[in-house]
């Protein structure tokens, strides 16, 4: 790509060069923010993870940690008894969670895109979890004594019929599905509240995508005699596929970085309760590397199948 050319002895922008320049101008807010603020913060945090911090009255002093600075990393990986296990656990929980959320939100968005009475109300209620799960509200709810006792009380009251309603027992008695599938399905049924409240953003993204598909595509295919089923697989699904990628990545990030995640909370207590900033930063960076690896893997696989309408 040639951006400059010489004309009359002066260096001038080519057409491509002008295009590139306006591109840079458009993303200027991000460039300033990333290189002016975000990157320096990141570098500072990395340097914390390689050092021991002494906090004094007039600021802090950094000294290099043992083992060429890798002391905290070695400790997290080989000495700390919980760290490896909790990272692996959160990765394992993530898979089923992401799959269920994507399926549910895609289904819900298709449902909400159809015409029926009370659609506006149903939509408002389906997106309501975006509000319910944000920031302070979720943490207040999780720490609330009364709500948790109320819930456990109803669970105890219904224990008589719970065997009858237990889908795992039902499936293992009456079908010959493998145990893995049964536990996945029963998790989906018992965890329906968690799945539903984790899907607000994803439903919104899918719905906005569904509505940006031009109706003329459907008109044309109906004219040719296509059925609803064919329309779904030949038009809706390809057109929405870029958003499946977005939602998959978003759900992965959300399940890894939510405040309720075990690793996140142990990092937070290490840094703020035990005041081990170096060790906490090292744990955070190791965890971050694991997240990044999974995102690259998933993003690479899905983006191969994505269709862009250009």
């Amino acid at each position: 790509m040639k951006l400059f050319k010489k004309r009359n002895g002066k260096l001038r922008l080519t057409l491509r060069g002008k295009d590139a320049l306006s591109g840079y101008l458009f993303i200027l807010p991000f460039l300033l923010g990333f290189f002016g603020l975000f990157l320096p913060m990141i570098l500072q945090s990395i340097s914390f993870s390689f050092s021991n911090m002494e906090v004094g009255t007039d600021g802090y002093v950094l000294s290099k940690a043992a083992n060429h600075g890798f002391e905290h990393y070695i400790r997290a990986l080989t000495i700390d008894p919980d760290f490896n296990l909790s990272v692996l656990n959160s990765i394992r929980d993530m898979w089923s969670n992401v799959l269920l959320v994507i399926i549910f939100s895609f289904f819900a968005a298709n449902l909400l895109n159809q015409k029926f009475h009370g659609r506006a109300i149903a939509r408002s209620i389906f997106f309501f979890p975006v509000i319910l799960t944000s920031g302070i509200i979720l943490s207040i709810e999780q720490s609330d004594l009364l709500l948790s006792t109320m819930n456990s009380e109803t669970a105890q009251n219904s224990s008589g019929i719970s065997d009858f309603l237990n889908i795992a027992i039902f499936l293992s008695n009456y079908t010959s599905l493998p145990a893995g599938v049964i536990s996945f399905l029963s998790e989906a049924v018992t965890g329906i509240y968690d799945i539903v409240i984790a899907s607000g953003v994803q439903i919104l993204v899918f719905l906005a995508g569904l509505q940006s598909i031009s109706p003329s595509l459907y008109e044309a295919s109906n004219m040719e005699g296509a059925t609803g089923w064919e329309n779904f697989w030949k038009i809706t699904f390809p057109m929405i596929s870029p958003l499946i990628l977005v939602n998959a990545l978003y759900t992965i990030i959300d399940s890894f970085t939510s405040a309720g995640n075990d690793v996140m909370s142990s990092i937070k207590t290490t840094i703020f309760t035990e005041v081990k900033y170096g060790f906490g930063s090292a744990m955070a960076w190791l965890y971050f590397l694991a997240i990044a690896l999974i995102l690259i893997l998933v993003g690479g696989i899905i983006s191969k199948k994505v269709f862009y309408y250009d």
Partner: peptide, 21 residues
């Protein structure tokens, strides 16, 4: 590469950079 940086800002947990911020 720059778009990768955008994604990076999303996946870096804010807890990592809270003290520097």
């Amino acid at each position: 590469l720059l778009f990768g940086c955008v994604i990076l800002t999303l996946i870096v947990p804010p807890q990592i950079i809270m003290l520097p911020l």
